[in-house]
Amino acid sequence: MTPYDASPAQGQPGLIDGFGRTVTYLRVSVTDRCDLRCVYCMAEHMTFLPKAEVLTLEELDRIASAFVRLGVKKLRITGGEPLVRKGVMGLFEGLSRHLQSGALSELTLTTNGTRLTEFAGRLADAGVKRINVSLDTLKPDLFRRLTRGGDLAKVVAGIEAAQAAGLKVKINAVALKDDNAEELPDLIRWAHGRGCDMTLIETMPMGEVEADRTDQYLSLKDVRRELESYWTLSDIPLSTGGPARYVEVAETGGRLGFITPLSHNFCEACNRVRLTCTGTLHTCLGQEDATDLRAVLRAGASDEDLIEAIRLGVDAKPKGHDFKIARAAAPAVARHMSTTGG
């Protein structure tokens, strides 16, 4: 893979949007495909992108390296499920040069955990220090239903393999009123008992799926209030670069994060942008803004042309999203989370 330059762009400021926010965090989707079909994320019968529309690993490296050159310090590889992408470890191993040079502070990923037993060691060797694993329940039958066929034991084995390889694991769970609301305390205890941080996420209105998210929406304000009726939660100033607000749970000794795009948005301090696997730059998860970086690349752009296109895209970053949960309302954005990048 060509080692694209990521030395700082000479005499140029970092990536600052039109509202003065500095972008230091890029989430890179490497595929829209996944080996699970979570009910709140995907339609049961998804139509996946043709290969020609998906960026090559070399193109993904080039764009990510341009962002690093512009001051991005954190890269998160996402999907779909990133570890189903053929050759994806070559991308991790290539991008690790930016960790070694000091240009990049962190290279990480979000995964469903199904392939960690195979890849955890190589991820650690590439300089990945911590990962997020999506896990909404510890009940095998419910897990199978929510993921439309997934095997909970495989994910748990993957988490164990990641920890054995020295990776710090954070568990992400989507709060679902009818499915896992009552189980959330047990899931938190389980995660903290294994030395994992835990983050709860409100369901988001993205893409057409069969389920009605109105029925499943659970405000994390209410969840926190319930947890505080029997646990001691203390706000802490922890920041991992993302939108979560963290507390420490005295009774479990672990940290718990809340991502609340609906009940309390986090737009005022947003430092993130997303690159889809098709090369579209989205500067807001909840808006339809888009910059086609694939077209720029495939038109023969120089590195400076690419940097200019990125700057223009980031400059147009909207002030915030307008997610709403309402019965029979259309999704805030038409694209699925699996296409956007988790």
Rank of each mutant, 00 (worst) to 15 (best):
A211T: 04
A316M: 03
L49R: 09
F48A: 00
T108A: 15
D303Q: 02
A9T: 15
A301H: 10
A153D: 05
G195Q: 15
N180G: 06
D235Q: 04
N271D: 11
D186H: 09
V296K: 02
S302L: 08
C38Q: 11
M46W: 03
V30C: 05
P205E: 04
G166F: 12
A330Q: 08
A6H: 13
M42W: 01
A52V: 06
E93L: 03
V169G: 09
M42V: 04
R85C: 13
L104V: 04
S302T: 13
T137E: 13
E106Q: 14
V333Y: 11
A181Q: 05
G342T: 11
K324P: 14
F48Y: 09
T240L: 10
S229D: 11
A330F: 00
V273T: 02
A301W: 06
F19V: 09
H98W: 05
T117D: 08
E248R: 10
P331R: 01
I307P: 00
I259E: 13
R62I: 13
L123H: 02
E53F: 13
F119T: 07
T278V: 03
L275Y: 06
P8T: 00
L95H: 00
M42G: 07
V169Q: 14
T137S: 15
L306G: 00
L220E: 12
D32V: 11
L107I: 01
V72E: 06
L75T: 01
F92R: 07
F48R: 00
E268D: 05
A334F: 03
E106R: 10
P50E: 02
E93R: 04
T339C: 06
T137C: 15
E81R: 10
M337S: 10
E251A: 06
L83F: 12
E208S: 09
E106N: 07
C34F: 15
R37L: 04
G207A: 01
A328I: 01
L146D: 05
A326G: 10
I63Y: 02
R194H: 13
G193M: 12
L152A: 06
E202Y: 05
V68T: 08
C41A: 15
G18R: 15
L83D: 14
K51N: 08
K324G: 05
L256S: 04
R27P: 12
V30E: 15
A124V: 12
D178M: 01
L275R: 14
G150Y: 12
D178F: 00
G320T: 07
C34V: 09
L15N: 05
L123I: 08
H336P: 12
L109V: 09
G20I: 13
K168S: 03
R62Y: 12
W190V: 15
G313Q: 09
A103Q: 10
V156S: 10
E228A: 06
A299T: 01
A157N: 08
L36Q: 13
L220N: 14
L281F: 02
A120P: 07
I77H: 14
S239Y: 07
A9G: 14
I131C: 09
I188C: 09
L220K: 11
G113C: 12
D32P: 11
L109E: 04
Y25N: 02
E248P: 07
R37F: 10
E44Q: 03
R311A: 00
L116A: 08
V28F: 01
G286P: 01
L99D: 07
L75Y: 10
R145G: 02
L176W: 05
S7Y: 07
F119G: 03
V209P: 04
L184G: 13
V209T: 12
A290E: 05
P243V: 12
G253L: 15
L281M: 02
